[in-house]
């Protein structure tokens, strides 16, 4: 669906004396779902910060169809849901539109259209504290999606959920992504989640990070729970686990 190709080219970054990103390079094709796995603290969130335009890299570039990416290319969903208690759920989801200068009424109309597919109908006027963990994550995702950016950057969106809710959320994400045709970059520490959702999985090395391995997941879509028992699924999982283990031994 998306028309633009993202190129991350040799991105390097350090925080003071701490080198974090050491020549990270990869491409994302339009409509592709790419997961990023890596040991914790290796620089995954930092990489998203670079893509979202929050930190400038020392070296390297982020390109959209060959031209330098702007901040409006990426829709960023941080690790914490950051839903504000002073806003209703609906007004939390319109935040990005309002910041972008859209009139409140129009913003609400736009966001409200997504409450159906996001399973939040009836909670428009609720406060975030009244939502369960899964619903909070969907609200945060809705807030990201409604901005209509080219690429979604999702930083461990299901990391804090219990495993049942997480599985349900993964299936749900697979389903809505297929329907909307989003281009997604997902950070996760859950190998199974990466394989289940992705077209491609990138494994980052320990800090300073570079792309240590790339695994293509050739499983048919739409995927459902049945795919978990597919031999190809198990093979991809094993390969990723192996790479990650090798990485931590270094």
């Amino acid at each position: 669906m998306t028309l633009l190709k993202i190129t991350v080219d040799g991105v390097e970054l350090a925080f003071g004396d701490l080198p974090v990103l050491d020549g990270v390079s990869f491409d994302v094709a339009p409509g592709e779902f790419v997961s990023i796995l890596g040991p914790s603290g290796c620089g995954k969130s930092t990489l998203f910060g670079v893509l979202a335009g929050l930190v400038a890299p020392f070296r390297g570039r982020v390109l959209v169809d060959g031209a330098p990416a702007g901040r409006e290319t990426f829709g960023y969903m941080p690790q914490k849901d950051l839903l504000f208690p002073w806003r209703t759920v609906l007004d939390n989801t319109t935040l990005g539109l309002e910041v972008g200068g859209m009139r409140r009424r129009e913003a609400r109309e736009r966001a409200r259209e997504l409450f159906g597919p996001f399973g939040l109908v009836g909670f428009e006027k609720s406060r975030p504290a009244e939502l369960s963990g899964g619903m909070r994550q969907r609200a945060a995702l809705l807030r990201t999606v409604v901005q209509d950016r080219e690429v979604l950057l999702l930083d461990e969106p299901f990391g804090a959920l219990d495993s049942l809710t997480r599985t349900a959320m993964q299936e749900w994400l697979e389903d809505v992504r297929g329907r909307f045709g989003w281009t997604v970059l997902l950070i996760t520490h859950d190998i199974r989640e990466a394989v289940f959702l992705s077209d491609r999985v990138l494994v980052l090395s320990p800090r300073p990070a570079h792309v240590a391995r790339e695994v293509r997941i050739d499983l048919p879509r739409p995927r459902e729970v049945g795919v978990l028992t597919d031999p190809a699924f198990a093979a991809a999982e094993a390969e990723l686990l192996d790479t990650l283990r090798g990485g931590t031994r270094l």
Binding site: V121, G122, E130, S132, R138, T167, W172, D175, E224
Partner: peptide, 18 residues
């Protein structure tokens, strides 16, 4: 209901924390 993981359903069952 396009998928068993339908949000509508999760929405209702995990409403209790409210």
């Amino acid at each position: 209901t396009p998928s068993p993981a339908l949000p509508g359903r999760t929405g209702r069952t995990d409403r209790s924390p409210a």
